[in-house]
Amino acid sequence: MQTETHAGADLNLDTLLSLYRGMLSIRKIEEALVRLYQLGHIPGACHTYIGQEAIATGVCAHLRQDDVVFSTHRGHGHAVAKGVPPEEVIGELLGRMTGCSRGRGGSMHLFSPEVGLMGTTGIVGPNLLQSTGAALSFQLLRLDRVSVCFFGDGAVNNGAFHEAINMAAIWDLPVLFVCENNMYATEVPFAYATRNTDVVARAASYGVASQDVDGNDVVAVFNASAQAVDHVRGGRGPYLVECRTYRTRPHAEGMRDVGYRTQDEVSQWKQRDPIAALRTALYNDAMATEEQLSAIEERVTATVDAARETAESSPFPDPSTATSHIFSE
């Protein structure tokens, strides 16, 4: 089990540094959220994306702003990668007015249609069906936009996965299914919940093109997604990418992370950290210097710090607005 990122294979330095910056932004935001949670400043749930950053970053690098992303309960990374500003993500988790939904939704209800983030969701499954619907509208309106659905291994055992992929297949819909297989649905192992843990095989059984990649190798995800997005945007029907990955934090902040996986397993996956892997590859291939990468890290840290301060100083919503936006006004 080794993640080895081959930086110089076929990507130029600008692209690699952009991927590095993208993953690091997500990581720094998540680390800030963990601290805010521990200080008791996040009044609800917080599922972090730490360890899985390569996937959102590698996939969204190929998307235009008018492409749409349907996300999950572990969706902060997708929001950031699709272009939601950090202060809007942090602000939403703090329940503040600067949040992208003005504090109304929290961690699992990040919405920002203006950048194509069609929502993170607290219920597993529905996003698969909605992403298929978005793809249907693009086909009907003859738009070359792509609909992307992120989901975990847990969703693969939900009826919505089967309904969506079947529909997408029969209509050749422009939807990219990205399975982030992090091996656990909350704490139930995927291998315990299904006889066949090969998600790519399920795609094949519906006649859908697919491939699996090391989800901790951002270059591998980037290359697979390039092919997948090209396939989907080119009108050749849906595509599924299975990214094998791991969350190194508990399912949700505040949950005890024991009893279902070993510390040894967690440690092994931490060795495969996607950000460290790219950093190492950039050194090894002599493409970037320590100074360059540290300078990027400093800039990202400063941006996230400023975003956190903006979010923390933002007001809470007016209680009288609790009854607004039920119907159109």
């Binding site: 529905p126 249907l136 086909q139 009907l140 309106l141 009826g159 969506a164 529909m167």
Partner: peptide, 28 residues
């Protein structure tokens, strides 16, 4: 048949697809 879609037999699919299409410009 693009605008009058015979869907697979799956009610959550029908409504979920309608929601997704509605969010992206259609009136399903």
């Amino acid at each position: 048949e693009m605008r009058v879609v015979d869907s697979p037999l799956a009610e959550s699919l029908i409504v979920g697809v309608a929601i997704g299409a509605a969010a992206n410009g259609m009136l399903p």
